Amino acid sequence: MSDPEPLTLTETAAETGRARTAIARRLADIICLPSSVISPQERWIVGDLLYEILRNSDARIRRRCALRLSEIKDAPANIVKLLAADELDIATPLLQASEAVSDFDLMEISRLGTTGHRVLIAERLSVSETVTAALASMSEPAVITALLKNHGARLAPPTVNHIVALAQDEAGYVASLLKRQELRPRAALQLFWHCDHPNRKLVLQRFAVGRSLMIEASEEVFAMAAAEGWADPLVNRALKFVDRRQRNREASDVSEYGSMEGLISQIRLRGAEPELIGELGLMAGISDSLIGRICDDPGGEPLAILCKATGADRAFLEQLCEGLGGFSESEGLRRATAIYDALSVEKAQTVLRYWDWSKAGDGRQK
């Protein structure tokens, strides 16, 4: 992506003599006086005079004024914006620390400035959600890395989701994303697919939770929904997430393989035949897109979650790994069994169902 055109002064700055340097310094001195000495009206008038001088002065004068005004909380907004959008070495003190730069101006500078301007904005002591959204929308690795490392930068859920989507191609975002308090289950469990094994373990440790409260609160709703003939699709969708049972018993009853374990034994012998994989998803009670993603994943951890959630013993996890990718003698099996042993059935079910509920399985394959 090419950088947008940077903001520039409205006229070519001319080389200036001692008089212009002196008047610029004097006016800046007046602007920096405390409010007990100068009224807001007088400060604004002086600011208008200084603004006109700075627009047509050389970089030396602009740099000096920027450094001086960076510490003034109520510095004139027009001058602050002019200098904050200037060449990077002039803009730096204002973009780093000035409280006089408004969010609106920061968003405009982020849109029209250079990558260097955006990195400085991302590193500010405090960055609002609207400004971080504008910065992240450019999808520049240097800027997003600065945002993720800055815990004074507040990230709205859409911004987090955008960065999670970018993490598929920018693995360096993953570790920093996992440290953000704004990360929510939906984004984290989508991020899981882009993580290495240690970070997948961190995702599961933080977001694989039980559903005891939901189960207890919803017990009588199952009877209500059944009495209504399961007519409300939204209720059905929510209850499917809460249900204690993971396997589709009806699918097992009509299957020629008799059970999920029988089907896994066939996958071990015949490999990842589409018909077998489709039936595996049906027996597990999950969507075709999710079972496809689980079986295509090269890491092995999703297979462990599938087996633990459905109550399949570790021996069948080993058979499934062997049939799908030759994991039985590889590091993949070690990763899979480590996840299998670390998760309870209920927590594995939460992850599996949340993937399906949130359509996390509909993303691009790794």
Rank of each mutant, 00 (worst) to 15 (best):
M1L: 03
L9M: 15
L9C: 02
A14N: 02
R18M: 14
R20K: 13
A22S: 12
I23M: 06
A24L: 04
R25V: 15
R26L: 08
L27W: 14
A28L: 08
A28Q: 06
I31A: 14
P34A: 09
S36R: 10
S39F: 11
L50Y: 00
Y51Q: 14
N56Q: 04
S57P: 12
I61C: 10
R63T: 14
S70A: 15
I72H: 14
D74E: 02
D86L: 04
E87L: 01
D89H: 07
T92H: 11
A97P: 07
V101T: 12
D103E: 15
L112W: 04
G113C: 03
G113M: 02
R124M: 01
L125V: 05
T130Y: 02
T130S: 04
S137Y: 01
H151E: 13
G152Q: 13
R154N: 02
R154V: 07
P157T: 12
N161I: 07
A165L: 11
D169L: 07
E170M: 08
S176L: 13
L178H: 03
R180L: 08
Q181E: 15
E182L: 06
R186Y: 00
R186F: 01
Q190M: 02
F192T: 06
F192Q: 02
F192A: 10
F192G: 03
F192W: 03
D196K: 04
D196L: 02
P198C: 08
R200W: 00
V203L: 00
L204A: 02
R206W: 09
A208F: 04
A208P: 10
V209T: 12
S218E: 02
E219N: 10
V221R: 09
V221L: 05
V221F: 06
F222C: 10
A227Q: 12
E228D: 00
E228V: 00
G229L: 12
A231H: 02
D232F: 10
N236D: 15
R245Y: 03
R249F: 01
E250C: 09
D253W: 08
V254G: 01
Y257T: 08
G258C: 07
E261I: 13
E261N: 13
I264V: 13
S265Y: 09
R270M: 04
G271Q: 06
E275L: 06
E275M: 05
G278E: 00
G278V: 04
I286K: 03
S287P: 08
S287L: 07
D288I: 09
L290Y: 07
I294K: 11
G299H: 01
G300D: 05
K308F: 03
A309F: 09
T310Y: 00
A312V: 15
A312P: 09
D313M: 01
A315D: 12
A315L: 11
F316T: 08
E318Q: 13
Q319A: 12
L333F: 08
A336Y: 12
T337H: 06
A338T: 15
A338I: 12
A338W: 08
Y340S: 08
Y340H: 13
L343H: 07
S344V: 02
E346R: 14
A348Q: 05
Q349L: 09
V351I: 03
W357C: 06
S358D: 10
G361P: 06
D362K: 09
G363M: 03
